[in-house]
Simulated assay, not measured.
Amino acid sequence: MTQYAIVTDLNRCVGCLGCSVACKILNGVPVGSYWNKVLRIGPFPKTEGAKWPDVYTYWLPLQCQHCENPECVKVCPTGASTKREDGTVQVDKEKCIGCQFCAMACPYGVRYLNEAEGVVEKCTLCEQKLSEGELPQCVAQCGARARFFGDLDEGIGSFKGAGKIPQDGDKSYESVMKTFCTLDEVCEPYTDADIHHLTDVGNGPNVAYILRDGMWRGEE
């Protein structure tokens, strides 16, 4: 069974907000709303009682988690919210009545009402780009190569990120966007203990985060 998801290496993320801006531009997200927002977590002392500069901070991109058992789908009275065969959770705007039951049921607050259209919106993992064999916009535009997209059934090491700029040949934007690197090719080594998820309240969040040498506080 396919389960598309995004993995972010928090040790590589620099908090530039490029993913959030790229998402808003491509998907026409209204001012004041976000499909992908970046939170600052910290600063926290590296050891008990420590003070600056012995502190650490990391940036946490927050979006729809495309859950295994999404609560938003369960409470939708019209069937507008569905979990597809590729594992993504999508909203059919033709069926959505804007009741916001799904937004209230989401544990992560990543849905909102588009008041102009009267429908609920959220991250779609850029399904329009996936259908063309491209990466979600937030992954493609990550300058730090911290975000990767793929199928969890194939292991996160195989997840794809934006391509490397070649030493020779075509270095154009269009060419680079058609090449990919994998998470294991780019990222520092990690263990299973370094892989984290947001709080699971029975919904099974699928978006994952890698954090080494730091206390995971994404659940708070």
Rank of each mutant, 00 (worst) to 15 (best):
G161T: 01
V75K: 06
I41Q: 09
N27W: 06
V29A: 02
A208L: 15
K171M: 15
M104Y: 13
G202I: 09
K178S: 12
A146T: 02
C96E: 00
Q141K: 13
V119E: 03
D194N: 12
C142H: 03
D192L: 07
F180V: 12
P107Y: 07
F101A: 10
Y112P: 00
I210C: 06
K24H: 13
K171V: 11
A208H: 10
I6H: 00
D9W: 01
C106K: 07
G143E: 09
A22E: 05
L135D: 03
G133L: 09
Q63L: 14
S175M: 15
K93M: 10
K37V: 08
D194C: 14
G28W: 09
P61H: 04
F148L: 08
G157F: 05
Q63G: 07
G18C: 01
E132I: 08
P45M: 11
G150Q: 02
E132G: 10
T88W: 02
A80N: 02
L198C: 03
C181K: 10
T199P: 04
D170H: 12
V38H: 01
A50D: 15
V38P: 01
T78P: 03
F180A: 13
I195Y: 05
G98C: 07
A193K: 15
A22Q: 06
E115T: 15
G143R: 05
K46N: 13
L211T: 02
E188G: 06
T124H: 04
P189K: 04
M104C: 11
P43W: 03
S158T: 15
E71C: 08
N69P: 05
K160M: 15
E174A: 14
P205L: 06
W52A: 08
G133E: 09
G109L: 06
C96Y: 00
L198H: 09
R212C: 09
R145Y: 13
T124E: 05
S20A: 12
S33K: 14
N69F: 14
I97A: 07
I165W: 04
C76R: 02
S131L: 10
